[in-house]
Structure formats: C-alpha cells, structure tokens
Design a protein around this nucleic acid. Sequence first.
DNA 1: AACTGTCGTTCCGCCAGCCGGAACACCCGG
DNA 2: CCGGGTGTTCCGGCTGGCGGAACGACAGTT
Lengths: 255, 255
Amino acid sequence: MSGKANISESLAKGLAILDLFGVEDAGFTLSEIAARVGISKTSAHRYVTTYCEQDYLARDPRSGLYRLGVRTLALAQSMIETSELVRGLRPFVDEAAARHGIHIDVALLSRDAVYLVYRRDSADTRVFRSFSYASSLHYLAAGKAAMAFMEPRALAGIMSRLQLTAKTDRTITDKAVLEAELAEARELGYAKNNEESLPGLIAIGAPLFSLRTGEVVGAVSFDSSTATYSMQELERLFAGYLVELAKKISAVVSL
Amino acid sequence: MSGKANISESLAKGLAILDLFGVEDAGFTLSEIAARVGISKTSAHRYVTTYCEQDYLARDPRSGLYRLGVRTLALAQSMIETSELVRGLRPFVDEAAARHGIHIDVALLSRDAVYLVYRRDSADTRVFRSFSYASSLHYLAAGKAAMAFMEPRALAGIMSRLQLTAKTDRTITDKAVLEAELAEARELGYAKNNEESLPGLIAIGAPLFSLRTGEVVGAVSFDSSTATYSMQELERLFAGYLVELAKKISAVVSL
DNA sequence: AACTGTCGTTCCGCCAGCCGGAACACCCGG
DNA sequence: CCGGGTGTTCCGGCTGGCGGAACGACAGTT
C-alpha cells in the first residue's frame, strides 16, 4: 500500500514511535504506544526493546513509562557538529559578534519549530557553545523571521497547526495580529520579539535562505535585555547589520 | 540467531546506520553506509530514504553525502524537556546558583561521553536554557567526576576506548596520569579541570548517582575563569557545597 | 481472598515485506 | 569513447515482522 517510494515499513513504524514523544508528554506505556501507532502490543514491544537496548528509549524506573533516552542527545550533538551550515556560518557570526560586542544566535527551521544550533557569546572569550534548544515559532524573533519569509503554502500549513500558547502577557495569541506582524517583517526585512517569550527580553531576527532552493532554512537573531537597549535602539543600531549578516551567510553557505 | 532478546532486526539495522554518524565524520555515501553496516546497497537505500523522508537524515546538496537531519534536534530537545532527572534537579540547581551567585552545569553520562543537559546562569535573571552539548570525558570536570566514581569494569572499558585527544596544552594525554587524577578525585569526592579544555577556564565537578542502581549517571560542575578564581579558591569556596548538592540530588531524584 | 483490570512478556503459525543479486541510469576523469 | 564511481529500480526467495492469544505480576476494588 502507501504512497510511493521505496521505504522500509518497519523502520517507518519505528520512527513513528519516536514521533510520539513531544516536549510536553511525560512518557508512554507500551499499550499506549501500540494503540497510538496502530500496531499490536507484540510489535510495539519488539521495537521498544530494540530502542531501549541502544539507549534511544529508556524506562522510567519509578513510573515504568517509556521515555526518550540519552542516546538522542548524542545524535543531536553529532548533527550540529557536522552540519555544513553551522560550520560555514561560524566565522561570520563570530566576527560579527566580536566586532559589535553582541551575542548572536543561529536557529534552524524544521517542521513547526526552530532549533537553536549555535550561540556566539559576546566580547569576552567564553566558550563557543553549540547546542540544541527547540521552540515554537510565534513568540521568537527567529521564528517570526522564518515564518515571514517562507513560501505562502508552507506558512498556511504551519499557521493552521500552530498553537498560539502564551509565554508572557505580550505573546501574540491572535492569528490576525500575527499575520500583520509577519507582513511588517516582510517589509522591514527582519522580525521583532517584544518581550513575547520572556519579560524584559527583546530581540530582532533575520531569515536565512537556502542557496539552492531559495527557501527559508533558519534565522539569525540577537536578543537584549530591555535594561540595555530599547526596541528602537535595537533596530536602529543592529537591524541593518543583522540583515546584512543573514544575506552574507545565505549567499555563501550551502544547504 | 543472535544473542537473546526479542528484538526487531530491521530497526536494529536502522539504528546501526545512525550509529555511524559521529562528531568528526563529515557524512557518508550510500555505498559506504551499506558496507559499514554490512547490508546490501538495496537495503541501505530503503533505510536511508525512510530516514530522509522524516528528516532524520538529509543529503548534503553539494557533496551528495548523507548527513544527520534536523529532526534529531527535536528528539534531543524532547528528551531533555521530559527527563525526570532534569526536571527534578532544576530547583536544587537553581537555588544553589542563586544563593552562591554562580552558574552550575548538569551533565548526563551515556556511553563514552557526557552531555550537558542543563545550565543555570548565575545571579542575573537570564533564561534557563536547556541544551545538549556533548563531549568526551577526559578533559572535563564532569567527565572526570563520572569516570572516577563508576564501577571498575565500566571504567576499564571506557579507558580502553578513550582517545586522549588534547584540547589545550594542559589536557591529560597519558593514561597513567589520568588514572592518578581519578584516584585523587575518588578521595576528594570531586574532580578538577585545570585549563584542560580551554585556556583560562577551570572547573570542579561532583558525581550524580542513580538512587536505584547506585551507578554514576552524570555530574554537576561549576566552571570559572582563572581571572575570577584560582583553583585553590574554587576548591575552598565551592567544592564542599558542590558535593553536597550532588548528594542531595542523588538522594531525591529518580533515574 | 477472590475478582477484575491494568501492565509487560512470551509463544507460535502465517504471510507481508525485507533481502541481496543483478541490471539500470547517471556523472565524472581518463 | 570507456571504466569506475555514484544512486536507483526490479524481482524471486525466504527471513523475520506480524498480531491473536495466553501467561505472570501487580494494584485497586469489592
């Protein structure tokens, strides 16, 4: 059956199990997994034990529920470390951060979330940390930058699925308001976050494009405490440069 | 055939593909994957396309090599966010960080590396970021703390596999020296990192144990610039407290 | 205590679908 | 033009995934 391609049904079902695990779900029982994926308990058991063997899943010792295991962290780390995009943009981001004394975040877009893959801390010679920090789209400068510049069809799909959960009292929870902001971002070339994810934290973000397909693949962003800069200052001082940086990266780095 | 358990051979082979991807390897060609895993190109193709379909793998557009995809980041994020251990230890770490005005890192042990899963930044009310930053063991306070207190057999296995790559000129590259340091750490109750991962950065780390099995599962650590504290000061001021914190967490949190 | 409802685990016969060899289309360097 | 390297598709053979059913353990209810 199924659509088209030459895919492994077993592996696909295995991955369907991993798909169950979101950021809010605490864990699942074996029967639950079987029911949600639509396979027998027997099969679910076989898959799950295979995952556990390799630390991709683990059983919570007290609740008995199945959770994601530590092995998943290694995958993410490897992904980030070997990503051509991340490697390629480091010099640009580091240079920009050093020159302007600011820290810059780089996020990649996948499905309905952005993933922070690189942060260059500001002036002081601290570690260059690469990490993965996932989040939804609507309350982040990077997320809104990505949404603003993606193709309309993809955006429509995301908008229909997006839960506009409030992180602060300034988080946008109305789709019409969000649409209007995205339109403004398209005009400006960058998106803003006005204390929508955390009180006292503002940010601006500019989109990264794929050299090959022309689609949005992520965003660079710069956040600041409201005590340091106002949004007006942030835009006046850094927005132009951030957009330039994003363009420079998009022009050079692959993906 | 095979050893024992009720395992899905297909999924196991699929996971074996993911195992290929380390932090240094740039990417693989399909034939390479097939050869390394020990399956036919046909099967490898089926697995790989299945992975690509779900963004677990992706083809680098210019080199044509298969790489890890962005989906792996989402898994790691979900793992961290839903981890009982991480959730449980947050209050302790936050309290400790706030009281002493320091930032504390929490790392989990898996196989031959530690994964940073939580960092609480110091006094200022910055974001609590959870992220995954993987690393080897021998040049980190957290890594050495974990090694020092793991059971001898597991340690022997790791020691035999460990590549003592140098990150700075003070990184320990001699196994005998490392053994001696681990012995010292066992005595002290905590491990040190004396500019072994980055010049000017020192740290101390204390092990976390599983309440159930008694084994080491990770470590808490605290790092500082040499400009702020000397190693002697670090030990005198914070070591006792860090060890206490680790004990408190080990006693309360599951896993 | 016995009953009832979960859970995870194991056994087993059946047939879906994984398997790998071979042939294919492609691109590049000689 | 050809030889060696990709990735891709086709196909028959048979492995191993499949789910129903039965089992042992545990927890809550009666």
